[in-house]
Amino acid sequence: MADDTILITGGTGFIGQHTIIAALAAGFRVRTAIRSLDRADEVGAYLAHGGAEPGERLSFVETDLLKDEGWAEAAQGCVYAIHSASSTPSGNYASEEDWIRPAVDGNLRLLRAARDAGVKRVVLTSAFGAIGAGKASPGRPFTEEDWSDLDGHIAPYQKSKTLAECAAWEFIAENGNGLELATINPTAVMGPALGPDTSHSLMMLKGMLEGQPGQPRIQSCFVDVRDVADLQLRAMTDPAAAGERFLATSGDALWLVQVAEILKERLGEQARKVSTMQVPDIAMKAKAMVDPKVKALLPLLGIDLLANGEKAKRVLGWDPRPPADAIEAAARSMIEVGIVKV
């Protein structure tokens, strides 16, 4: 109920900050976990940019996904917890283990602390990367019944999200002692950036807006970060969400050329550098021989990544924005806060 204290980890992150804003607007008191309290003022500025005026209803606690210290204090007295903190593709990681350990160990630290503190339910921010990676399209939209193939061609980030979510469900089954779990699995997250420290999903728009020469034959589903935050709160409080996974996705999958076309249509002169040319697969393969980042994209060429978000709508009454609106909001905000120079 409103005025309860909830823990939201990942307070420096794109999804975490929008979830804090939504939780405060719903009347909750929020304790947010960040890796360094030195960033508390910065986070406060981002939240203010998003319209939040939390006052004493927001507090900060310092935790690290790779350290035990601070987690018990973070969870103490909280009715619910939303775990958004994880390693993301925007970080610099030397090995696969650098991705996996923070994701898996961080989940387990949060779950143990939540269980021991008597938290009712944890909502885990997982990813589509735990559902549709490492394999070809199933010939139908991906659903919550699907899991990524760890033996397939899977990127370290997607592997880390899959292993971390699996570890969370296993913990609940074997050691949860009544702690409830729900997971949210967003596709590419768009929507308004609150500051220059933002999500890896928005970086695909940055390249387009700054004039990258054409778009690879890759598609994705999209969702607005504000709708992810809304879904996390619904999954936190609705009894029907306990023990369930929910894909956070809106509308049809879009090819990147279609995303470029949306930018040109919605932003006009500000999208003058955006190219709607499709880069041939053969050109991508040639570039991949000298560019590891391009090589990592090759398994996605031509793959149907349509995902079905009907479960969240049916079970939790979720009503997300259309993907074009989320993409436009992201692009305009990136220009406003200076992430993109047009």
Rank of each mutant, 00 (worst) to 15 (best):
E328P: 05
K67D: 14
E69V: 02
T276S: 09
I184H: 07
F222N: 08
V315Y: 09
G317C: 06
I82W: 02
A94D: 11
G44L: 10
D68R: 12
V189N: 06
D38Q: 12
A23T: 01
D230P: 14
A188N: 15
Q212T: 10
R140L: 03
V337S: 06
T187Q: 13
S275F: 12
H18W: 12
A235N: 07
G302Y: 07
I131P: 02
L231Q: 04
E42H: 10
R31F: 06
V257P: 01
P186A: 04
K264R: 11
R314I: 07
E269R: 13
L65Y: 01
R332E: 15
A253Q: 14
I303T: 14
A85F: 02
G77C: 07
V259M: 05
A168K: 05
G51V: 08
D291K: 10
L66A: 15
I282S: 15
R57K: 08
D146S: 01
L301V: 02
E310R: 00
E96Q: 11
L233E: 10
L66G: 04
D146E: 08
E180C: 02
S36D: 10
A155Y: 12
Q258D: 14
G338H: 07
L263C: 05
D230N: 10
V340S: 09
L110H: 03
D105V: 15
K120H: 14
G195H: 09
V122S: 04
I131K: 05
F171Q: 01
V294C: 03
D252S: 15
L306Y: 13
A229N: 09
G11H: 02
F246V: 00
A72W: 00
E42C: 01
R115A: 00
A26L: 13
Q270K: 14
F60I: 03
T19E: 12
K311H: 12
K273M: 13
A330Q: 09
R217I: 09
V61K: 08
R266T: 11
G10M: 05
G211T: 07
R266C: 13
P186D: 10
P138G: 04
A240P: 02
A326H: 01
M284P: 01
D319E: 09
L179V: 01
A331F: 07
L47Q: 03
I262P: 15
T9A: 05
A188H: 09
A173E: 13
A40L: 07
S333Q: 07
A117W: 05
A113V: 02
A329T: 08
V119Q: 08
V223G: 05
M289G: 05
A253N: 13
L66I: 13
A33E: 06
L205W: 14
L305T: 15
A271C: 04
E210R: 03
N308W: 12
I34W: 00
